[in-house]
Amino acid sequence: MIVTFYLNDVQVSYLVKPGEYLAETLRNHGVKSVKVGCNESSCGSCTLLIEGKPMMSCSVLTASIEGKHITTVEGIQEEAAKISRFFSNEGADQCGFCNTGFALTIYSLKRELKNPTDEEIKDYIVGNLCRCSGLYSHLKAIKAYLKEE
């Protein structure tokens, strides 16, 4: 089947299998920034924005996004660069595999929550697993990033 949607504001039409999930579709079409860590929506590596909301693309059927707007990290390059500066400053960046999903989640957090408490930040990002860092550095980096904005 053919599914038409907006990938970072560009309209695309992809030929997909009926049971195909979005992470697979995008990776098949060269969007390798979408990482797959578990394929069962429990690690958050494949996070991207659908109509501006963070979703785990390994568990979203491609057929269901007809006409919708999808944002991958390619769509928020400047914000990702900015976030990386704060991550680096706190020693929060390591292997980088979870980073693109994180960047999109944090970007969305900033737009959705005004002056969030620590607990609200934690609740928002808890679905994005990271096995390298001490996690506390993520919280500090995100708080610094939100403060600067």
Partner: peptide, 21 residues
């Protein structure tokens, strides 16, 4: 001294250099 990691920015921006990429 505080030095940003050489690959931190590129990886956050989604540069695709992991094995399966």
């Amino acid at each position: 001294n505080k030095t940003p990691s050489v690959d931190g920015k590129g990886l956050m921006q989604g540069r695709s250099y992991y094995t399966d990429d």
